[in-house]
């Protein structure tokens, strides 16, 4: 199928883009790498009147390290993040997750901002940002606001972005020294969207864990935090019994949507498996 007709603008700078967006708002779609949008257009599942191509705006391609944060420009591509030593060092969770995203040719175009704004419930980066309690910069001619990942994702393909806003950057706290980051997912084939996945971050403390963050993908209409399980894992030392307890807890904590190929009970089961495997790795690291 071929894309429906639309108009196209490529503003020279960020103010120009914001201005176009302010004028066209809901009738316009932003395009950056286009790896999600063009799929929708090619299937005629979207019909914007105007595409505003922000793909070349240098202002959105910065990768900045501050004392406590890494700020990732919305236009940095999956391949940029994968190749960045800074990301590998300071955001190992993200680094691990990127390896699961699609295939090289897609990673060469797809951007972090585009992925987050698309808000696919099975997207890896969205779950990582939620696990790391990231903040998203949303910019419009009305000004800039920072929205927490937990407030940003509002449903399947639904976000807090207003029609005139651009997701310009993601701010993520750097991992604590000695922190543990584990990303894992179950997919049918390499590069497929996950049937279920998990982004885990924590800091060891006296045989147990503190600062546990546990985000899940592919099991709800958006990435979700497994809060009960997080609390359980912080409530005492980590041992086999607690691993089993946590695995049981998380299965009860998720309520995946109906899907004829992958029944909710199957995805719930997977979440338990993924958590058990993750915590086994933590235990191994403890005993090493």
């Amino acid at each position: 199928m071929k894309a429906p007709d639309f108009d196209y603008e490529r503003p020279a700078d960020l103010p120009g883009a914001l201005d176009l967006l302010a004028r066209h708002g809901a009738e316009a779609s932003l395009i950056a790498g286009g790896q999600s949008l063009l799929t929708l257009l090619n299937f005629r599942l979207a019909a914007p009147e105007l595409l505003i191509d922000i793909g070349r705006l240098a202002a959105l391609k910065q990768l900045v390290e501050t004392d406590r944060h890494i700020e990732i420009g919305g236009l940095l591509r999956h391949c940029d993040l994968a190749a960045s030593p800074l990301i590998a060092r300071a955001l190992p969770l993200l680094h691990q997750a990127i390896g699961h995203i699609a295939h090289p040719a897609v990673r060469h175009r797809g951007t972090i901002g585009g992925s987050l704004a698309m808000a696919d419930p099975a997207a890896e980066l969205a779950a990582c940002c939620l696990a790391l309690d990231g903040q998203f910069s949303l910019l419009s001619t009305r000004g800039q606001r920072w929205v927490a990942a937990g407030d940003f994702f509002q449903g399947i393909y639904a976000t807090a972005l207003a029609p005139d806003e651009i997701l310009t950057a993601v701010r993520l706290p750097k991992g604590e020294p000695g922190g543990i980051s584990i990303f894992d997912e179950v997919a049918r084939r390499r590069g497929d969207f996950a049937l279920a996945g998990l982004a885990f971050a924590a800091t060891p403390q006296a045989g147990g864990l503190k600062g546990v963050r546990l985000a899940l993908l592919g099991v709800a209409d958006r990435p979700i935090l497994a809060r009960d399980t997080m609390a359980l894992l912080e409530s005492g030392p980590l041992n086999q019994a607690r691993v089993e307890q946590a695995a049981a807890r998380i299965v009860g904590e998720v309520d995946p949507p109906e899907d004829p190929a992958y029944p909710p009970a199957y995805r719930r089961h997977l979440v338990g498996v993924l958590l058990r495997r993750t915590l086994q790795r933590v235990l191994m690291a403890f005993s090493a």
């Binding site: 299937f43 084939r189 390499r190 497929d192 004829p260 190929a261």
Partner: peptide, 27 residues
């Protein structure tokens, strides 16, 4: 992998390569 699935009303659920899985080199 490969399966053409329909819902009970006869709507094809596997109309793309995202839903109809073919064997790839990796597996």
């Amino acid at each position: 992998y490969e399966e053409l699935r329909y819902d009970p009303a006869g709507q094809l659920l596997t109309g793309s390569f995202a839903d109809y899985l073919v064997p790839m080199a990796g597996e």
